[in-house]
Amino acid sequence: MAASGTKIAIPKITWEQVSPAPVVLVFGKESFLADRALQRLKSLLLLEDPELEVSDVDAGAYTDGALEMIASPSLFDEPRLVRVENGVKATDAFIADALRYLQQPVDGTTLVIRHDGSTVRGKKLLDAIRATPGAIEVLCQPLGRGDLVPFARNELRLLEREATPGAIAALVDAFHSDIAELANAIRQVALDTDGPVTEQVVRTYYSGRVETTAFAVVDEVIARDTAKALVTLRHAIATGADPVPIVAAFAMRFRQLAKVSGAGGGDGQAARQLGMQDWQVRNARKDLRSFTDATLCDAIEAIAHADHAVKGAERDPQHAVERLVRQLADRSVA
């Protein structure tokens, strides 16, 4: 560890940047990204030495002395990977042993500690890892909606597949609620189709899922097709969609329209100013042609009322979201 009074800033990296290190902290609530980090680390260590010994430890059920025994070199000096799960529930015994271990990590051993950050349990240990020279921290926090397009693009890049912005948007719209599902969907469509992945390819491959998402409902509302919007909405709800995220999808899209409505310059310039993609600005400007400033403001106010309604202010959330669809599609907002 660092000398007293000396602060060490260990690297904070993403899962795809993981490389072997004496001590690795995998921190954050997104278990899918944490699993990715652990898989990548193990693969890299196996490439270095196929004789790698892997041990798993549950920090929440730990007893005295086990860490030193597991991490110590074997008779034949094979490299070791020690994966510690459940750091958020670490026993006092594990914290004490790990703190001792950090004073002098074992050569040839990679110690990985997983902590989801949901409680401050083990804070002293976390601080110690973050002050250990040579350690790294892998950040595995849940991705926000704005992070999913870059994530999907990177997944396709790793699979060496070309995809259009519309295809990426369709995949994110359909599988935004679960990053593992999104990654699996991308992998499936990439492996099972040939040529560039286009929006039409995605919509054909995942027709049932894509066409009944909240964003498909929003698309029909913006197109002012009330009947199709209601059919799509009812299909979505019948197949398990919840009114709350449906209204959230309306809120996100219309906030985007409001941002773009006040932006000047070309699509690229506006995109840079707003932190958006060029195609998002271009599509928003096309959608704005069917709104006036007044109807856009009214729509945003109606969405706010609907959000309140589906979160408990009214007894029938489905009725509230249907009313919103009718109001916005007819532009009959008050």
Rank of each mutant, 00 (worst) to 15 (best):
L139W: 06
V84Q: 06
E137R: 11
F151P: 03
P196W: 07
Q103H: 12
I186A: 00
A167V: 05
V149S: 07
R130P: 09
R145D: 13
E85W: 14
P150C: 11
G87A: 09
L125W: 00
A190F: 00
A185T: 02
E155P: 00
D192I: 11
V172I: 06
A93T: 07
A152F: 08
D147E: 15
L158P: 02
E137L: 10
V106F: 11
L182Y: 07
D97V: 00
E160C: 02
V138R: 03
P105T: 10
S177G: 14
V172R: 01
G195V: 08
D194Q: 15
G108W: 09
A152W: 04
L81T: 12
V172A: 05
L126S: 04
P133V: 08
V88I: 10
E162C: 02
D107Y: 04
Q103R: 12
L81S: 08
D178I: 13
V120T: 14
L182R: 02
T110D: 05
A180L: 07
Q188F: 05
P196Y: 04
D92P: 02
E160G: 01
G122I: 12
Q141A: 15
H176G: 04
G195M: 08
P150G: 08
E181Q: 15
R100F: 10
N154V: 00
A93Q: 14
R100Q: 14
R187E: 15
L102Y: 06
I129V: 11
A190K: 00
Q103A: 15
V112F: 10
D192V: 12
L125Q: 00
S177L: 13
R153L: 13
R145H: 15
F175S: 03
P196M: 15
R80L: 04
T164N: 00
I168N: 06
G134A: 07
V138Y: 05
P150R: 08
L156H: 01
C140Y: 09
T193S: 12
Q104T: 11
T132R: 13
S118G: 01
V172Q: 02
E162N: 13
K123N: 11
R161G: 01
E85L: 13
D107N: 13
K123T: 09
G108V: 10
V149R: 12
L111Y: 06
A98C: 15
G122A: 12
V82K: 02
V88C: 02
K89I: 09
D173L: 06
A180W: 04
D127N: 12
I186L: 08
L102V: 05
I113Y: 08
L191V: 04
P150L: 11
I168W: 01
V84G: 09
I113R: 00
A163S: 05
A96P: 09
G87C: 10
E85I: 09
L156M: 08
V84I: 09
S177W: 03
C140M: 11
H176F: 12
T164W: 04
E162S: 14
A169G: 03
S118E: 11
L171T: 06
D178P: 10
L126N: 01
A190D: 02
A131H: 14
A90V: 06
G144A: 13
D192P: 00
R161S: 05
A183N: 08
I186S: 03
A135T: 09
P105S: 05
G195E: 05
T119C: 11
V112Q: 04
P150I: 10
P133I: 01
I186V: 11
D147F: 03
E85G: 14
L148F: 10
G146F: 14
A163N: 06
L143A: 11
P165S: 03
P165Q: 07
